[in-house]
Nucleic acid binder design. Structure first.
Lengths: 131, 131
DNA sequence: CATAATCTACGAAGACTTTACTACGAAGAG
DNA sequence: CTCTTCGTAGTAAAGTCTTCGTAGATTATG
């Protein structure tokens, strides 16, 4: 009965940038998204509009057309998409090894003591949850 | 003095697939790469050839033309590229948070008890190394 | 009301990705 | 030596990604 949204595809670079804005801001108009994007890089209003239209077609965002200025929101929560991306890279580049992925991440960006503590705690929690 | 190879770009999906073969096999001819790729999916010989030519232009692989059948090898070790990819995703999708990345990876593919132990061990080693 | 501002839709250019066909030279087999 | 096999190079088609210009409708403003 419930017509589930089909699995949206892996977002591209530009799409991910826009999703990031939507996750941070919540539902937003093209104008709002554009204002934030434009702070970081030159981009025309219609470019953002077009991206959002395409993303709506792909199912990456949903849009509410009740108002004249349509309101867009990410169709999946940040965590869901992050899981997809992590799983995808894990399989494509790390042969499924979470350890290798973590090695890569730590090598790419040195972690602080606090972050390491967080990571350890995360593993603890996770073990509790699965056993 | 040393004319360093410029930083090669992030490999695409198809490129990563070929790099994976080269990392596993070491230097190889087009034919050897093709034989392995063709086991997993239908692909013409010249397709693999073309990919390798393009990858050589981009600096992702180096080629030795001394023999008639050129020999290709990854220009960067697997770990180096993994670090790039992990760092790239970390920044693009996880706002630099290694913790979030690990959460995503663990959610995407449940880790076994053994793997969790490995991860913990990795963090220990890493802390020793940095303090 | 007339004009300006705001919005969506459409179209399309240019770059990149992936795939495969064709051409042609070099090496190997009978 | 002739014919087949193996190899590279070049060309290009089809698809995707990213960007932006133009058009036309709707709303706000003087």
């Amino acid at each position: 009965m419930s017509a589930k949204t089909p699995q949206p595809p892996r977002p591209t670079d530009a799409e991910l940038e826009i999703l990031t804005v939507l996750w941070a801001r919540g539902p937003a108009t093209v104008r709002e998204v554009h204002e934030i994007i434009a702070q970081r890089k030159p981009a025309q209003y219609t470019t953002v509009l077009k991206m959002l239209q395409i993303m709506a077609e792909k199912g990456l965002v949903r849009r509410d057309e009740k108002e004249r200025a349509h309101i867009y929101q990410a169709s999946r929560p940040r965590e869901w998409t992050q899981r997809q991306l992590a799983g995808d890279l894990l399989q494509r580049a790390f042969n499924g090894s979470a350890k290798s992925l973590l090695v890569g991440a730590l090598a790419a960006r040195k972690a602080s003591k606090e972050e390491l503590a967080e990571l350890r705690k995360l593993l603890e929690e996770y073990e509790k949850g699965t056993q």
